[in-house]
Design a protein around this nucleic acid. Structure first.
Length: 424
RNA sequence: GGAGAUGUAUCGAAGUGGUCAUAACGAGCACGAUUGGAAAUCGUGUUGUCCUUAACCGGGCACGUGGGUUCAAAUCCCACCAUCUCCGCCA
């Protein structure tokens, strides 16, 4: 959520941001609601002040034996008026809040202005795509041929966009998770969290998934909870409604979780393989940072995620998302894209964002530099480190051999207990 | 799932319809006094948020959350949430 003061004092800044995002939302109604709200509020508060003052005198009047009938009648009327005002204010409040929750974050000045993902800017590249001296297969074919991925049975027992991992496939998925978490905790200083996979509405609102993107989430029928679309939701909300100790910043968490996405609106896209599933595994990195250092922390976080692909020895590139492709809550995002031979292009495997105080304001996460200081909002950041299913897909494709087997990347061998995934 | 209890500031805790939410009392914390220095002791200070204002001042709201009753609610009523204890069920 944006600071309402920006709406009051510098609405054009929001208008520009919306325009750069290709968002045609008109904020005029919000400005009017805010004005109306403040006028009503001033009126109601004046009435309440009067009510409080007279109420204070009543015990003395009663003690003195004075007749209070007239004053009670007058007060009843005042009380009714106040209730009426309060009802109106509450309605406007909710309407305004709802509106504010649907205004996306303002992109950072450094973010390239662009209409969509074609105008993202490549920042750097690691290694070069592997050149094959045979016709490489797509990971879904490799997985099926090696009997380690079972898409048909995934569809049978659940539905489309669900996959069963089997044998060394299941083990590879688990190895990747282990490798990621161990690297983050042992080398990069993150504290591991294992969060709930279901969260309440307040948590989903805190990180920005609600109210605008409710149709993208799975909702649990009998308790109204949501299946998490990413560990970002429970982990960022760990500190919802808290005031953090400034000397402890940055707080760095990593978390493995399954992630659940309805993938509404992406029917027909990436229907084959592991790229777009209703349930997938991901290791997420989350930081709570001092506003003055958050962009420094974004670079570090992105590097922490990149390190995994370097260790795995797979080509990737980092792009800075343009305003037209930037996520709703984010002020700046780097995507890490891994080389995927079947797509013959780079495919997103991580998205590293600085949300500045946008999520912190929604989730009310603050900090004090010193005990005497006033609490201020932290900056929240997160990034995938990395998407596990897509990593497995990238490994299968980039490490495949002419005979149909797949070489296990060096760093995963301790977890896999084999050098090669071969036919049985 | 059943029964009971609890929810007040940083923590413990008092307050059961108005004169104690500028929230008693105790602790913590900050500053000061005392001291060679510390402990102990003494003193002073210490909630958040919203509206208004250049600022000061002023005002509103908040006793788990949301409603209701009342001229007036921490206090009475209803619903919900969380925690604890016991019972049942369960990996």
């Amino acid at each position: 959520m944006l600071d309402i003061k920006i709406l009051r004092n510098d609405p054009d800044r929001i208008r520009t941001a919306l325009k750069n995002r290709n968002n045609d939302l008109d904020i005029t109604p919000a400005i009017e609601l805010d004005l109306k709200r403040r006028a009503l509020l001033a009126d109601a508060e004046q009435k309440k002040a009067k009510q409080n003052e007279i109420t204070k005198q009543i015990p003395a009047m009663k003690k003195a034996g004075e007749n209070t009938d007239a004053i009670f009648a007058e007060m009843r009327e005042l009380s009714d008026e106040i209730k009426e005002d309060d009802t109106k204010i509450n309605e406007i409040d909710e309407e305004l809040r709802n509106f504010m929750l649907r205004i996306p974050n303002i992109p950072n000045d450094e973010v390239p202005v662009g209409k969509d993902d074609t105008e993202n800017v490549e920042i750097r590249k690691y290694s070069t795509p592997r050149q094959f001296d045979f016709e490489p297969k797509a990971h879904w074919d490799i997985g099926a041929d090696l009997d380690i991925l079972d898409f048909d049975r995934g569809a049978k027992i659940a539905g489309s966009r669900f996959t069963v991992y089997k044998g060394l496939g299941a083990r590879l998925e688990r190895a990747v998770i282990q490798f990621f978490l161990n690297t983050h905790t042992e080398e990069s200083g993150y504290t591991e969290i294992f969060p709930p996979y279901m969260v309440n509405r307040a948590s989903m609102t805190g990180t920005g998934q609600l109210p605008k993107f409710e149709e993208d989430a799975f909702k649990v029928a009998n308790n109204g909870y949501f299946l998490i679309p990413t560990a970002e939701v429970p982990v960022t909300n760990l500190h919802r409604d808290e005031i953090l100790d400034g000397s402890k910043l940055p707080i760095k968490y990593c978390a493995y979780s399954a992630c659940f996405r309805a993938e509404a609106g992406s029917a027909g896209r990436d229907t084959r393989g592991l790229i777009r599933q209703h349930q997938f595994n991901k290791v997420e990195l989350v930081k709570f940072a001092d506003p003055e250092k958050s962009y420094e922390e974004l670079e570090k976080l992105t590097n922490d995620a990149e390190k995994l692909l370097q260790k795995l020895g797979i080509a990737y590139r980092v792009v800075c998302l343009s305003t037209g492709d930037l996520g709703f809550s984010s002020a700046k995002t780097y995507d890490i894209e891994v080389w995927m031979p079947s797509y013959n292009r780079y495919v997103e495997i991580s998205s590293c964002s600085n949300f500045e105080d946008y999520q912190a304001r929604r989730a009310n996460i603050r900090f004090k530099r010193d005990v005497k200081d006033k609490a201020q909002y932290v900056h929240t950041l997160n990034g995938s480190g990395l998407a596990v299913g897509r990593t497995v897909a990238a490994i299968l494709e980039n490490y495949q051999n002419a005979d149909g087997t797949v070489t296990v990347p060096e760093v995963l061998r301790p977890y896999m207990n084999t050098d090669v995934i071969g036919k049985k």
